[in-house]
Design a protein around this nucleic acid. Structure first.
Length: 306
DNA sequence: GGTAGACCTGGACGC
DNA sequence: GCGTCCAGGTCTACC
């Protein structure tokens, strides 16, 4: 990526670590994100004025602040827009003081900020493409969405709203998800789904969760997962990975008494309220790190994805 | 309220 | 190379 435009600075909390913030949630592996582990830089296109693409390269300076290199010069307002998107991705403005007090082990591990997208729409589409499909397939869908619909960046609601579900299905291999993705994009463009309402801190998690469930294609798992992306951690996104984690068994969707098991899982994390999701994800994430370590020692297990 | 089956794709596997 | 099976969350129809 050429960086011969504006260079923006972004202040971060003292304990902030870019690599930890990026590699905390699997969406960082999905395009248009590109994480360079050697140089510890995050590269991706963002949307500037009039939805024009701005390629950015995000790195952390020795003083701790973030440097955002852009591929073109930005006016002040457009630079502010880019800063806000980076801040959202890395949850720079979120306060995790209470979480660290509740979970000292996570605090010592520096585990708090879960990576997300520069806007809610991208998180929602990524969640839809992550459902009912293998992770490699999710990677393919997001790659094709960026390449064939978004012009290199992640598609905007306007771009997807202007795409027919048939074309989306054929060109991006999203299958039956095409109707749901286009439907969500069109409802946003028409103003029927109000993103600012969903991000309003005055709303309760119950209100947001119920509104998300009204969106076609968003079920209990996706709604809880999107609550997490909206900074609400008091909902558990229970999926087959969760059943695997708590039971050590495969085939979660076919387990008997799923409702009873869901109640047991929720009870297990109740003591971390209102950070149940973070506590659950911390367990998974430290497990993955252990798996990764064993993998380097020659076993056949693979690092989990989402 | 609970359950079964369809949706769709790519990968694994057997032949 | 081809066919079959499987994983995965949501929706709908049915009991």
């Amino acid at each position: 990526m050429r960086v011969n435009g504006s260079t923006l600075q972004l202040g971060v909390p003292a304990e902030f670590d870019l690599a930890a913030a990026v590699c905390s949630y699997g969406y960082f592996m999905l395009e248009p994100n590109r994480w360079a582990p050697d140089s510890r830089r995050l590269l991706r296109p963002l949307r500037g004025d009039r939805e024009r693409i701005v390629h950015v390269r995000i790195s952390q300076t020795r003083r701790g602040t973030l440097r955002i290199g852009c591929d073109r010069r930005l006016a002040r307002a457009e630079a502010g827009r880019i800063r806000r998107q980076v801040a959202r991705m890395l949850r720079i403005d979120e306060d995790f003081t209470a979480w660290r007090r509740i979970h000292p082990q996570a605090r010592r591990a520096g585990f708090d900020r879960l990576f997300r997208s520069p806007d809610f729409f991208e998180d929602a589409v990524k969640t839809i493409t992550a459902c009912n499909v293998s992770w490699s397939n999710t990677i393919t869908m997001n790659r094709l969405l960026c390449k064939r619909i978004g012009g290199g960046g992640f598609p905007t609601p306007r771009q997807l709203a202007a795409t027919s579900p048939i074309r989306l299905r054929r060109s991006c291999r999203v299958g039956y998800r095409a109707d749901r993705i286009v439907g969500l994009a069109r409802s946003i463009v028409r103003g029927e789904t109000d993103l600012s309402w969903l991000e309003d801190p005055q709303r309760t998690t119950d209100e947001i969760h119920d509104r998300l469930l009204e969106i076609d294609g968003i079920g209990p798992y996706s709604a809880a997962n999107l609550c997490q992306h909206l900074g609400r951690y008091d909902r558990l996104a229970i999926d087959t990975e969760t059943y695997r984690h708590v039971t050590g068994r495969r085939g979660g969707s076919r387990l008997p008494n799923r409702a009873a098991m869901d109640r047991r899982i929720r009870a297990r994390y109740q003591k971390y309220r209102p950070y149940q999701f973070l506590a659950y994800w911390f367990e998974l994430w430290t497990g993955y790190e252990g798996i990764e370590a064993r993998r380097h020692e020659g076993t056949k297990e693979t690092v989990a994805s989402k």
